[in-house]
Amino acid sequence: MSACKCEQNLEANYQKLQEVFDKYRNVKGALIPLLQEAQEVFGYLPGDVMKKISQEIGVPFSKTFGVATFYSQFHLKPRGRNIIRMCQGTACHVRGAAKVFDAVSTDLGVGKNETTEDRRYTLETVACLGACGLAPVMMVNDDTHGRLTPDKAVSVVKKYE
């Protein structure tokens, strides 16, 4: 009987991780690039992957974990296929960002920094997206959507299903 697809994908991911290790072997200061590339392979940083990185480059796990939790670019939990970033900056706040966030949150059934069970969406808040003239604003993946109302935001998100 062959392994299930998830096991085959996991095996392929660990093979890619080994290639990343080979790329950075004996490179001083490789911890952050290793974490970045490992996250690219797995979509987040599982604990066992961080332990392997620590072993590979000979640093304590506490240092690897400390770096991974210090920088906001690293994620320790699986994330959704679509990342929704809701702006909470001043211009967006004044123009109703809280209601827009609440509508999307309610529609998806998740709160701030949570991922839907089917891993389609991760809902995050950010301090500013730099599109104040379009407030309230959100990004879905790399697409910016502005002048949102609660209903408009929910309909935009549905387009990414």
Rank of each mutant, 00 (worst) to 15 (best):
I57N: 00
N13Y: 01
L76F: 12
I53L: 11
Q73V: 15
V94Q: 11
A153D: 01
H145P: 00
T122P: 04
I83E: 12
S105M: 09
Y14H: 14
R147G: 08
Y121Q: 03
E161D: 15
C128W: 08
M138A: 08
V137C: 06
C128S: 09
E114S: 07
F61W: 14
V154E: 01
C87I: 03
S72H: 10
T64Y: 05
G47D: 12
R25N: 10
V110A: 04
T122Q: 05
Y71E: 11
K99Q: 13
P150G: 11
Y71S: 14
D107M: 14
T90W: 06
A127T: 09
S54A: 15
Y71M: 10
Q73W: 01
E19N: 13
T64W: 05
A127P: 02
N9T: 13
E11D: 13
R85Y: 12
G133Y: 10
E56K: 15
I84H: 04
Y14I: 02
C128P: 08
L31F: 06
F61I: 14
G130P: 01
I32M: 10
V110E: 01
G43D: 10
M50G: 01
H75Y: 06
V27K: 14
T144I: 14
D142A: 10
K158F: 07
V41C: 05
P136G: 06
S62G: 07
V20C: 04
K52S: 14
L34Q: 07
G133P: 01
P150C: 05
A38I: 02
D143L: 03
G29R: 07
L45D: 05
H93L: 01
F42P: 02
S2V: 09
N13F: 07
E124K: 13
T64N: 06
S2G: 06
S62L: 13
K23N: 12
I83W: 02
C4L: 11
L148A: 02
M138Y: 01
H93E: 12
L45T: 00
G89M: 01
A153I: 08
V41A: 03
A127W: 10
K77L: 11
G111S: 14
T122C: 10
H75I: 02
L31R: 07
K16L: 13
S72I: 03
F21S: 05
P60C: 02
R81A: 06
E37Q: 15
H75F: 09
A103L: 06
R120K: 15
Q73M: 15
Q36V: 08
F65Q: 11
I84T: 05
L134P: 03
T144E: 11
L35I: 05
L10S: 14
V140Y: 03
P33N: 06
I83S: 02
